[in-house]
């Protein structure tokens, strides 16, 4: 398992290099002088020259790429044109906000989705099964932005149960240690703030979780139905194992193999969905960060923001692959 992990990590090197190259070329693909485009037509010649030098655009491209890579390796993601701050420092709170939202959404989606799928399969054709599958069908066909807006309208505006947007509305924020507010507030022992953070998480989290939850539930159900018909499940029952264990241990471990793929894919898509959800709910995450950068033509931020999201995506895939190997002993660690 250990050497398998190392090998999988090694195979990521070309992927990461390719990603860096594409992101690197993005800015250079702008026709004419990118510095001029970034600054606009009214910019003075000195400003354009200064930015050209700042971005290193005056050097041959292979030298530019080399120094770009060297920068990446030492954790240098460039400097924001707008704020003049190093992106590697600036991006972290945004990234943490997205991760917190995505993680909460995914945990909820997996927990409810997998359990709904299991129970539907266990009690196939029961009322629970019918209702869960109808809800799941509605869930998969629901556009995220529509769901988000409806939530805001009904839950936040009409009934005033939860805040419409934002991540908290606290006067004296606790010290940011991880930038995951759920954890930071707990570390500080501020439970009032903790619940405030949860209240802000519910609506965007739900909007983000709906589609993956529905897909995971459907996938789990069909996978479980197939597994529960197999001979080895009959063997387990013939040994006198309780039905609960037959379902949640003997069946689930097998049924999870295809479900894990779906969870991985959905987590990747969820990152994309997060950008949409963040704009709707004013969530200060990486989506908002990139979105703002686009309107300011802050190219270094756009570049690095995309790189960070792509990196996350690759890491999720790696995690899913390792999870596979942990569940299914038939996967050869070769």
């Amino acid at each position: 398992m250990f050497s398998y992990t190392i090998r999988r990590l090694g195979s990521l090197i070309p992927v990461l290099l390719g990603m860096a190259l594409i992101v690197f070329m993005m800015i250079r693909a702008i026709p004419g002088n990118p510095a001029q485009t970034i600054l606009g037509q009214q910019a003075t010649a000195t400003a354009v020259a200064a930015l050209t030098k700042d971005l290193g655009l005056d050097k041959p491209w292979h030298i530019q790429f080399w120094s770009y890579l060297k920068g990446l390796f030492s954790g240098d993601l460039g400097v924001s044109l707008r704020t003049r701050q190093p992106i590697s420092q600036e991006v972290w709170p945004y990234l943490a906000a997205t991760m917190e939202l995505a993680l909460v959404a995914m945990i909820v989606a997996v927990f409810i989705g997998v359990n709904a799928g299991i129970i539907s399969a266990w009690f196939q054709n029961s009322w629970f099964d019918y209702i869960a599958m109808i809800v799941a069908l509605i869930g998969v066909s629901m556009p995220i932005f529509w769901l988000g807006l409806m939530e805001q309208y009904v839950v936040a505006l009409q009934f005033d149960l939860l805040p419409t947007s934002g991540r908290d509305n606290i006067r004296d924020p606790v010290q940011a240690i991880t930038n995951l507010y759920l954890i930071d507030t707990l570390i500080a022992g501020r439970f009032d703030q903790f619940f405030e953070v949860i209240k802000h998480l519910i609506l965007p989290g739900f909007a983000l979780a709906t589609i993956p939850m529905a897909i995971i539930a459907r996938m789990t159900r069909s996978s479980m139905l197939e597994v529960m018909r197999s001979d080895y499940i009959r063997t387990a029952r013939a040994k006198g194992v309780k039905m609960f264990w037959v379902v949640y241990s003997h069946s689930l471990k097998n049924a999870l193999i295809p479900v894990v793929t779906v969870i991985g894919l959905q987590t990747g898509l969820l990152l994309g969905g997060a950008i949409l959800t963040e704009t709707i709910f004013g969530w200060p995450g990486i989506g908002t960060y990139i979105y703002d950068a686009i309107s300011y033509r802050d190219y270094p931020v756009i570049q690095s923001g995309i790189l960070v999201v792509a990196f996350l995506f690759v890491m999720i895939n790696l995690f899913v692959d390792l999870l596979y190997a942990a569940i299914d002993p038939r996967i050869k660690y070769k």
Binding site: S230, R234, A238, N254, D328, P329
Partner: peptide, 25 residues
């Protein structure tokens, strides 16, 4: 029945290739 199965009455199934759970030792 659960108390009897595997304890007082046990069964060997027809298909040895598929009657063991692939993900448990």
């Amino acid at each position: 029945m659960r108390k009897i199965r595997g304890n007082e009455i046990a069964m060997i199934f027809q298909e040895p290739m598929t009657s063991l759970n692939p993900v448990f030792t």
